[in-house]
C-alpha cells in the first residue's frame, strides 16, 4: 500500500499507447456509463436475455483486447463483486413464486433468473469499468469529469484527494512499519487501541497538511478557484470510436428486442 511505486489510486492503471489509452477521458467515461445503461436496461425475464449478455460480453472483451488489458487482470477485477455474489446466490432460495427442482433443492424459478441476471449485469459493468480504469490515469479521469461539468468545488476536492492520497497512505504505511518493528501483535488485547491511535494521528496529520496546503496556495494567489487548462475540442471521430462500445451493445439489445 502507498509506498509501492505508482501509488494507491493508479493500482488499476496499465501504461500503454493503445487507441483506448489515447481517447479523451470524457469520451471513455460517457462510453462506459452508456454501456452500463444498456446492460442495465436489458429485461430480466426475456427469453433472449442470456444471448444478449453473451453479446455484451463479446463487445466488452473486444474493447479490452483493443486496449491491451490482459484477461488475468480482468478476472482479478471481479473480486469487488463478492459481497453481492452472495446476495445473488441467495435469491433463488428466498424469492417467492413457482419453484423448480435443481439437484434436489427447491428453488424459485424467477429467483434463479433474477439472480443470474444480477450477476451477469454486475459482471459486465465491472469489466467495462475495469477497462476504463486500466487505460486512464486518475489525473486524466479528473480532467474528464471536469469536462463533463462536475461542479468545480467537487472537482477541486477530488483533485486534492487524488493528489494527496499517496502521501496519506504512505504515512499510514510508515506508521505500520514503525508499529510492527516495535513487536506489535494485532491479536493481543489492546491492539485496537494502538491501531486506533495511529488512525487518529493520521487524521490529525492529514488535516494539518490540508491547512498547510491551503496557506501555501494562498501565498501563491489562490482565490477559491483553480485556473483551467486550455480546452481542446474532441474530434467527432474520437467520439465515434469511443461510443462504438455502447453502440455495439445497443445494437445487441435492439436485435434482442426485435427478434425476441
Amino acid at each position: 500500500m502507498g509506498a509501492r511505486h505508482g501509488g494507491a489510486l493508479s493500482a488499476r492503471y496499465v501504461a500503454g499507447t493503445s487507441p483506448v489509452h489515447r481517447l479523451a477521458p470524457q469520451v471513455k467515461l460517457v462510453a462506459v456509463l452508456a454501456y452500463a445503461l444498456v446492460v442495465v436496461a436489458t429485461p430480466v425475464h426475456a427469453g433472449w436475455a442470456p444471448w444478449a449478455y453473451a453479446g455484451y460480453l463479446l463487445v466488452v472483451l473486444a474493447a479490452a483486447a483493443v486496449a491491451g488489458v490482459r484477461p488475468g487482470r480482468l478476472a482479478g477485477s471481479l473480486v469487488v463483486e463478492i459481497p453481492f455474489v452472495v446476495f445473488a446466490l441467495l435469491l433463488p432460495f428466498v424469492t417467492r413464486g413457482p419453484r423448480v427442482e435443481v439437484l434436489g433443492l427447491s428453488l424459485s424459478e424467477s429467483g434463479l433468473q433474477t439472480g443470474g441476471a444480477l450477476l451477469a449485469k454486475a459482471t459486465l459493468s465491472v469489466l467495462a469499468a475495469t477497462v476504463l480504469a486500466a487505460t486512464t490515469e486518475p489525473r486524466e479521469l479528473l480532467r474528464g469529469l471536469e469536462r463533463l461539468r462536475l461542479p468545480s468545488a467537487l472537482v477541486q476536492i477530488l483533485g486534492f484527494m487524488i493528489r494527496y492520497v499517496d502521501v496519506v497512505s504512505g504515512e499510514l504505511h510508515r506508521m505500520r512499519v514503525a508499529r510492527e518493528s516495535r513487536a506489535f501483535d494485532g491479536r493481543r488485547r489492546g491492539a485496537l487501541r494502538v491501531v486506533g491511535a495511529a488512525a487518529g494521528a493520521l487524521f490529525i496529520r492529514s488535516y494539518e497538511r490540508g491547512e498547510r496546503v491551503h496557506l501555501a496556495m494562498l501565498s501563491r494567489g489562490y482565490t477559491g478557484r483553480l485556473p483551467r487548462g486550455p480546452v481542446a475540442a474532441v474530434p467527432s471521430r474520437d467520439w465515434l470510436a469511443g461510443l462504438s462500445l455502447p453502440l455495439a451493445a445497443g445494437a445487441v439489445l435492439a436485435t434482442g428486442m426485435l427478434l425476441g
Partner: peptide, 13 residues
C-alpha cells in the same frame, strides 16, 4: 477544497 480533499484521502486510506 484542500481540507475536504485531505479528509477524503484520510477516509480512503
Amino acid at each position: 477544497a484542500p481540507l475536504a480533499g485531505l479528509t477524503a484521502a484520510f477516509v480512503f486510506a
